[in-house]
Amino acid sequence: MINKEKHSERQIHKRIPGIRPSLSRFQRIDYFIRWLVPMGFTLFIILFLSVRLNIPGRNELLLPIVSAFVYFWSIYRPTSMPAIGVFFLGLLIDLLNFSPPGIAIFILLVIYGIGISQRFRLTRYSFLLVWFIFSIIVVGVFFIQWLLISVFSLRMFPVSYFIFETIFAIGLYPMLSIIFTWAHRTIADPEQV
């Protein structure tokens, strides 16, 4: 009972603007960690997937997962996913994967740009529509990747890689977005401090 009351109190607290006591040191650390969750988790995924483990489709998984991260957080909490951060995530992917540099940065920035510029429209849409828009973006973006890599290495790579990546991205997005939505409300919400 008391818990419930406290929770509702907090909810009200969150919505009403007003003067509140400034945060203590621990609260500030808590705030910072919550703010860091999306970026930190993306970083972890990038590092984890570059370790040589027997994960099937490991190479194909990395960019789809990271693009889902960037898309979701740039729409729902852009403060936790700043543009410079996205840039460095892309740079890290490029450096760790020994692919022609700049391509992953470019892809992630395109996704980020679309997410951030359309966020007010996208947040009002239903999940299915957001997913559908993500699918379209992903098709375009991974096609650009395939094209650029083919141009830079002066040979046509099989289209199957592009198709694989796209399918992974589209298929993984609902699952990831469940986790993201949960995190968005709980562990990654700086307002909960």
Partner: peptide, 14 residues
């Protein structure tokens, strides 16, 4: 600006 940087990195890489 970041877009331009990305394209610059691509060119440098080549």
């Amino acid at each position: 600006l970041l877009f331009i940087m990305a394209i610059l990195i691509m060119i440098i890489g080549q």
